[in-house]
């Protein structure tokens, strides 16, 4: 059976690695390196994260990309042939929205892969709602889903939305 690939991307600190750890049933392979910029955490993904989720006969490979745009070549390499791209964005960090839009533009204009936007950290006091994030990103509101990447039941929400839109 054709291997299926799902890409998780988004700016630094959006929760990409967290989502993959939540969804994966196998040990997650990561490629962390010490961060030399102030990005709010000690390490950052430099190549990819990888986990898997088995759904009956199908094995879904979940790949996380680096977040910084100097790694844009990895976005393209990983997205090639993928079922879909989940772009993660923090609802409480409007300063990361331009970077998120750059990633989405890059992926949309260079690959034939459909996308959804997963909006995280909606429990913070001041947040952009998913449809407001979609407006900034220039994507239809139904493509944005609020969810908590730490919770297993919640973590599948953006994937479900992607499949619904693809199957419609």
């Amino acid at each position: 059976m054709e291997p299926l690939k799902l890409i998780v991307t988004g700016p630094v600190g959006a929760g990409k690695s967290t989502l993959i750890r939540t969804l994966s049933e196998t040990e997650v392979v990561d490629t962390d390196a010490l961060a030399s910029e102030a990005i709010g955490k000690a390490t950052t993904t430099v190549a990819l994260d990888h986990g898997t989720l088995r759904l009956d006969g199908h094995l879904l490979h979940i790949f996380g990309t680096p977040g910084q745009d100097r790694f844009d070549f990895m976005w393209e390499i990983l997205a090639e042939g993928a079922l879909g791209v989940l772009l993660l964005v923090r609802a409480d960090r409007p300063e990361t929205l331009p970077a998120a839009r750059n990633i989405l533009d890059f992926v949309v204009s260079r690959t034939q892969v459909p996308h959804v936007v997963g909006v995280t950290h909606l429990d913070r006091p001041q947040v952009w709602r998913p449809e407001e994030v979609a407006l900034f990103l220039g994507t239809p509101p139904e493509r944005a889903v609020g969810f908590d990447p730490r919770d297993r039941e919640e973590a599948v929400k953006p994937l479900v939305r992607l499949l619904e839109l693809m199957g419609a």
């Binding site: 490629t31 430099v46 190549a47 790694f71 070549f73």
Partner: peptide, 10 residues
């Protein structure tokens, strides 16, 4: 530089 870090990390 970015690619060297990626290749090395991988």
């Amino acid at each position: 530089a970015a690619m060297a870090a990626t290749a090395h990390g991988l």
